[in-house]
Amino acid sequence: MVQQKLADSLNWTLLHVLIAICEEGSISAAADRLHITQSAVSQNLKRLEEQLESQLIIRNTKPLELTPIGHYCLQVAQTIFTEITSIEAMKGSNSHLLEGEIKLLVASRLHNPKYNEFLVYFKKKYPNITLDLTVKSSMDILNNLKQKTPAVGICLAGHMPEVLNRQLLFNQRYYLYCGYHHPLFSAIELTFKDLLTENFIAFNSEDIGDVLSPITVFKETHNITGQVKAYTNNLDEAVRLIYTGYGIGALPDQFIVATHLESKLRRLPPDEGIADVPIYIFWHKQRALSPIEAKFIEEIVEFDLSF
């Protein structure tokens, strides 16, 4: 009866607010996403904690930390809202008639909770469609697609090949980070000026015109003069080098949150991050799409993966 009472009285909108706070990393960012005031977000969080008679978030911690019951509540909330999206999937009574296999080429380490939600939605709406998914570098994906490989690609891109169609899916926000073994990790008062001469870890694809060139543009326009102490083409190796103190570097924030690296890395100023790197879906202009490929592209574009 106690569980029944809570289920009957709990305001599900408050769970949506909790998800936004956790996914965005702060109350202010959640307010921007939900298009409400920070005060309203704080009040909704307080109301949820009162209804559950439990503290969910530890105040005044950076990055944001959940209590054990907060973690469990977040998991329940995410499950509920994933199931809600499946209601939309039931629209279109003939969706079960589409069947076959879609070959997807996907860049590694693309973390976006809404992309996960889309895959849940798509699987429920089109249960007879199979995904053949291969992870490759963005450069390899674009090269494969330019050869009219029967596939659809999701990746970053610097130069846009003229023979490929593309649609923007979302922007991956990059922030500056230092690691546990770097002197800045334990600095109490830290400003952006403190970073201007620090050594850097850089990606090979940060060259002007390449996929991560917005990072280089930021460095140049903000007079960051530190030396590059290591280059890599691998995100995991970049994390390793940053963690071990070889230098500071730019990393996608959603990746850090998803892989629970907050205790090993420290996000540095500026608070708003340094660059948005767009993620696109690509397919060849002169290769006829199969009905299920066309449907996949249509659905993922309409789903709105921005966060």
Rank of each mutant, 00 (worst) to 15 (best):
Met1Tyr: 03
Met1Ala: 08
Gln3Met: 13
Gln4Leu: 15
Ser9Asn: 15
Thr13Val: 14
Leu18Phe: 04
Ala20Gln: 05
Ala29Asp: 13
Val41Lys: 00
Ser42Gln: 12
Lys46Arg: 15
Arg47Trp: 05
Glu49Ala: 04
Glu49Phe: 06
Glu50Trp: 11
Glu53Cys: 08
Leu56Ser: 04
Leu66Tyr: 07
Leu66Met: 13
Thr67Leu: 11
Tyr72Asn: 05
Ala77Thr: 08
Phe81Ser: 02
Ile87Arg: 09
Met90Ala: 10
Ser93Met: 11
Asn94Pro: 02
His96Gly: 05
Glu99Val: 07
His111Pro: 02
Leu119Ser: 03
Asn128Trp: 05
Leu145His: 02
Lys146Asp: 08
Gln147Ala: 15
Lys148Trp: 02
Lys148His: 09
Thr149Gly: 00
Ala157Gly: 06
Gly158Gln: 10
Met160Asn: 06
Glu162Ile: 11
Glu162Gln: 08
Glu162Gly: 05
Asn165Tyr: 13
Tyr174Cys: 08
Pro183His: 11
Thr191Gly: 04
Asp194Thr: 12
Leu195Ala: 03
Asn204Pro: 02
Ser205Val: 08
Glu206Ala: 12
Glu206Cys: 09
Leu212Asn: 08
Glu220Trp: 04
Asn223Asp: 13
Thr225Arg: 01
Gly226Ala: 07
Tyr243Arg: 12
Pro252Ser: 03
Gln254Trp: 09
Ile256Gly: 06
Ser263Leu: 09
Lys264Ile: 09
Asp271Trp: 03
Glu272Lys: 13
Ala275Asp: 11
Val277Ile: 15
Pro278Leu: 05
Ile279Asp: 01
Ile279His: 00
Tyr280Cys: 00
Ile281Glu: 00
Trp283Asp: 03
Lys295Ile: 13
Glu302Arg: 07
